[in-house]
Design a protein around this nucleic acid. Structure first.
Length: 465
RNA sequence: GCGGCCAUUGUUCAGUGGUAGAACAUCAGCUUCCCAAGCUGAAUACGCGGGUUCGAUCCCCGUUGGCCGCUCCA
């Protein structure tokens, strides 16, 4: 059973053709870089979320989950700097088509000019003045500055003349920060406290691509973990360890995952330290799945200033007030799924290369379906269906009657179903079925009445804890 | 957004200025079918919109989508 080389394209093709992912709005010709999860993808997504919730919310005593709104008061984004900072003034050289940030060009070529605080028009005048040349070809002719606002804008208002601009959130984090006070009050907790959220975020990326790796609409699983200043190192390490454990639970291969600490120059302005957890994607190379950032008290300070609300925490031990520091573990759910798909996809050669099967070696907890029930012959459909009906409420299960039994096994292998249950002619007499396991292809006779126990044992056996 | 390449059924490929074929996949039937067997039958495609033409899937223009490079990030 030799493993063939796999490419990113081959894997995404399989995902699209088998029903994990569909191109968005396909019957209208699609929409650039938008993807829909099909039935299989939606199931996997549920399972990954569920695993995450179990690990980071139920599993960590300090943590709670909230579910804040996507559309927030626009003042939130003014406070965070997203309105002013989340766009770059870009120009293209008309000759060689190279692209630059206008403020960078001016800063580097006219040392005596202070670009900070300059309006776009002023900046544009300088770039168009002929004093700035293209670093690539030396010509001095640029397109006008174009602003790329990364936040999606929309409007709220009862009547058109009373509309106001609002934004789709570019990150879920701020929904957590603005609720810090509410959570502390209503849960009556003491620090440390982690507030978790799973939800969509939107960024008008200039260059999305690589399938679901970078899209303009994506789902994040984020935690803002609040604690007493000075404990930064301790909790940073705590979340590094937990992220490692989580990645192991997902079953991602060790050698394909790495933790990468940001260099000081690479750090975002609000961050004191950041670690990325990256996955080695086929064809694409290393790509970030999640990041853990030390944000200090940056966000709460900003919100406290802008809102005028007191966001400090009264420490009952010392009877002093302070703004907590924050560690932010942030997960890209879609990327995590993509890594999972790439990691588990295998094309196995059987019978010396005469035959092959696609196997998705998904953890049984994460696979779309846990069980497939299939009658050996169509004549056994009604009886097999009863077995299926007995399982479907407790498990994600699928019933398949078409094609030869071998073909059906292959179909389930290709979508990662760990267990196939076959009802045959003997089952009528002995009330036993054949359970076939995905990875080993081994078979076992099991009493129908023992199936539930068998499956529970199987799931327990395969759980990586 | 800019430059380059591309667009035929679910997938992978043929093909022609007179509206299309294959393989695999799918569905139905036969087969006591346990790792893609076989037989019979069925459905499904020229991305979209203009133009040239008696006629365009094929030529031209536009558009949309995809892939590869330039800026960002989870």
């Amino acid at each position: 059973m030799a493993e063939k080389e796999k490419t990113f394209e081959e894997i995404t093709n399989h995902l699209v053709t088998s029903g994990f992912v569909y191109p968005g709005s396909e019957i209208y010709g699609g929409l650039s870089n938008s993807w829909d999860y099909g039935p299989l993808g939606a199931l996997v997504k549920n399972h990954v979320k569920d695993l995450w919730l179990r690990h980071f919310v139920r599993g960590i005593e300090y943590n709670v989950q909230i579910d804040p709104a996507i559309i927030m008061n626009p003042k939130v984004w003014e406070a965070t700097g997203h309105v002013s900072n989340f766009h770059d003034p870009l120009v293209d050289c008309k000759y060689c088509h190279a692209r630059f940030r206008a403020d960078d060009l001016v800063k580097k070529q006219l040392k005596d000019v202070d670009v900070d605080g300059m309006t776009t028009d002023q900046l544009n005048d300088i770039v168009q003045s002929g004093k700035i040349v293209c670093p690539t070809c030396g010509k001095a002719s640029f397109t006008p500055i174009r602003q790329f606002q990364m936040m999606f804008k929309t409007f709220i208002g009862v009547t058109e003349d009373h509309t106001s601009t609002v934004y789709l959130r570019p990150e879920t984090a701020q929904g957590i920060f603005v609720n810090f006070k509410n959570v502390m009050r209503t849960t009556r907790r003491k620090l440390p406290v982690g507030i978790c959220d799973i939800g969509k975020a939107f960024r008008n990326e200039i260059t999305p691509g690589n399938f679901t790796f970078r899209t303009r609409e994506f789902e994040q699983m984020e935690i803002e973990f609040f604690f007493k200043p000075g404990e930064d190192e301790k909790w940073f390490q705590f979340y590094k360890d937990n992220c490692k454990a989580f990645v192991e639970k997902m079953g991602l291969k060790d050698e394909k995952v790495r933790f990468r600490d940001h260099e000081p120059a690479e750090l975002a302005f609000y961050s004191k330290a950041t670690t990325d957890i990256e996955y080695l994607f086929p064809t694409l190379g290393w790509g970030e799945l999640m990041g853990i950032a030390c944000r200090g008290d940056y966000d709460l300070t900003k919100h406290q200033e802008s809102s005028g609300q007191d966001l400090t925490y009264l420490d009952p031990d010392t009877n002093t007030r302070y703004l907590p520091h924050v560690i932010e573990p942030s997960f890209g759910l879609d990327r995590l799924m993509l890594a999972l798909f790439c990691d588990s996809y295998e094309v196995q050669s059987l019978d010396d290369g005469k035959d092959s099967r696609i196997v998705m070696h998904l953890d049984p907890e994460l696979a779309p379906y846990t069980i497939a029930v299939m009658p050996l012959s169509n004549k056994l459909s009604d009886d097999a269906k009863k077995v299926f009906d007995g399982l479907r409420e407790n498990y994600d299960a699928i019933f398949d009657t078409t094609g030869s039994i071998g073909k059906r096994y292959r179909r389930e292998d290709a979508i990662g179903t760990p267990l196939c249950i076959t009802y045959d002619f003997d089952s009528l007499k002995d009330q036993m079925v054949t359970v076939r396991e995905r990875d080993s292809m081994k078979q076992e006779r099991v009493k129908i009445s023992d199936l539930n126990t068998y499956i529970q044992n199987f799931l327990g056996r395969n759980k990586v804890l």
